[in-house]
């Protein structure tokens, strides 16, 4: 399989090759890979790519999934208007 043509993070357009290269460079947790590549920072917040990256790291490094992958979530869980955050009430 041509890993340059396999999209792992479809939100941020990151290929399996890029992920594998990063693992080889020593980034061996999903969190680290997210920080250097943006994989996991898209609209789905890593729900699609996270498990795939975790499996890839685990396969290459031999470490168990739970060691390399620990999903974190911070509020808000979805898109939200700025005016809601700053408390502005008027539409204009």
């Amino acid at each position: 399989m041509d890993d340059e043509k396999i999209i792992v993070c479809r939100c941020e357009d990151i290929t399996l090759k890029e992920i594998r290269d990063l693992i080889k460079e020593g980034f061996t947790t999903v969190e680290e890979i997210k920080r250097v590549s943006r994989a996991g920072m898209g609209p789905c917040q890593g729900k699609t790519c996270g498990p795939i990256i975790a499996r890839e790291i685990s396969r290459i490094t031999g470490k168990p999934i739970e060691e390399v992958y620990k999903p974190h979530n911070r509020p808000p869980f979805g898109g939200i208007f700025f005016k809601e955050i700053v408390g502005e009430t008027d539409e204009k």
Partner: peptide, 28 residues
């Protein structure tokens, strides 16, 4: 579209599941 606050006594989370994907060539 408005942010509202709630203070419940108990919370039940029943958010279900997300589909897993598998990687293959041209999967986009």
């Amino acid at each position: 579209n408005k942010m509202e606050k709630f203070i419940p006594k108990k919370v039940i989370i029943a958010t279900g599941a997300f589909e897993k994907s598998i990687p293959f060539e041209n999967d986009d």
